[in-house]
Simulated assay, not measured.
Amino acid sequence: HHAAIARAVRKAGRLGVTVRPASSLADVRRWYRLYVGTMRAHAIPPRPLQFFERMWEVLAPPGRLRLLLAERQSGGQVQLLAGSLFLMYGQTVIFAFNGRDRSQLQFRPNDAIHWTAIMDASASGFRRYDFGEGTGDNAGLLAFKEKWGTRPVDMYRYHYPQQPRMDRGILASGPLQRTQEYAWRLLPPAMTTRMGRWAYHLL
């Protein structure tokens, strides 16, 4: 898919999309609004803003975290189209979180972000680029990752000591899952944010 990726990146550049690293907590907070909207569309509780603020304060100074923002000039203002948060560990760059303005995807901001991230990672000596988690029920996300030549591998989680967990997630799978997801997408973003804080507090 190299040609398709190259076309998407060239299109983003032609349409005035630029990618830059976040430089402050203000950038993190601007991006967080897009992240909340993206999680709402996927019917997934968003992680709290304080989680990302703390990550930025602890991991960004030693170069273990990077937030790339795709922006475009529109109407004399800089418009934030999308942003992705990456974690660095050893020789691997890990794509961890994304937020995007769904109405602006025609500008291909996520392609521009990943292209920049991969080029920068290679130039900095990293050897692996991890596209993060994916599940079989999100065909669009899996297709996007496969376009970049990804290879799926199984992921396992181990917890010690055993942690208390919720018997049923907020959007647990089952016969009511579609109804739950539909109802979740109707909630105001502020409410999904509050419910996310509650849910991750219990995990």
Score class of each variant (00 low, 15 high):
Ser122Gln: 10
Asp154Gly: 13
Asn138Gln: 14
Phe144Glu: 02
Asp130Cys: 01
Gly140Leu: 04
Gly140Ile: 04
Leu141Trp: 06
Thr116Gly: 06
Asp154Tyr: 15
Leu142Met: 13
Val153Arg: 10
Gly140Val: 05
Ser122Glu: 13
Asp154Met: 14
Lys145Asn: 03
Ala139Glu: 12
Leu141Glu: 05
Arg127Leu: 15
Met119Gln: 14
Leu141Phe: 02
Gly125Lys: 07
Tyr156Glu: 01
Gly140Ser: 09
Ala139Leu: 12
Ser124Asn: 11
Glu146His: 04
Asp137Thr: 11
Val153Ala: 10
Ser122Leu: 12
Leu141Gln: 07
Pro152Asp: 06
Ala121Tyr: 04
Thr135Val: 15
Phe144Gln: 01
Ser122Asn: 11
Trp148Asn: 04
Leu141His: 03
Asp137Gly: 04
Gly134Leu: 04
Phe131Ala: 03
Lys147Leu: 14
Gly136Gln: 08
Gly140Gln: 02
Thr150Tyr: 01
Lys145Pro: 00
Val153Gly: 05
Gly132Asp: 01
Ser124Met: 06
Ile118Leu: 09
Arg151Glu: 13
Phe144Met: 04
Ser124Val: 02
Tyr156Cys: 00
Ser122Met: 08
Asp120Gly: 05
Ala117Gly: 06
Glu133Arg: 13
Thr135Arg: 15
Gly134Ser: 15
Met119Ala: 10
Pro152Arg: 09
Ala143Asn: 07
Thr150Gln: 03
Tyr156His: 12
Lys147His: 08
Tyr156Asp: 01
Thr150Ser: 07
Ala143Phe: 00
Gly134Met: 09
Gly140Cys: 00
Thr150Asp: 00
Ala123Ile: 02
Arg127Thr: 14
Phe126Pro: 03
Arg127Asp: 08
Pro152Cys: 07
Gly132Glu: 02
Asp154Arg: 13
Gly132Pro: 09
Gly136His: 09
Ala139Arg: 11
Gly125Val: 05
Gly132Leu: 03
Arg151Trp: 12
Arg127His: 12
Trp148Met: 00
Ala117Phe: 05
Glu146Gln: 13
Ala139Val: 09
Lys145Met: 01
Pro152Ala: 09
Trp148Ile: 02
Met119Thr: 15
Gly134Arg: 03
Gly149Cys: 08
Val153Glu: 12
Met155Asp: 05
Thr135Ile: 12
Thr116Asp: 07
Arg128Val: 10
Ser122Trp: 12
Leu141Gly: 02
Ala123Gln: 10
Pro152Thr: 06
Arg151Thr: 14
Trp148Gln: 00
Thr135Tyr: 12
Asp154Leu: 13
Ile118Val: 15
Pro152Trp: 09
Asp137Asn: 10
Lys147Phe: 02
Ala117Cys: 05
Met119Trp: 11
Ile118Asn: 00
Ser122Lys: 15
Trp148Tyr: 11
Lys145Trp: 02
Asp130Ser: 02
Tyr129Trp: 11
Phe144His: 02
Arg128Met: 07
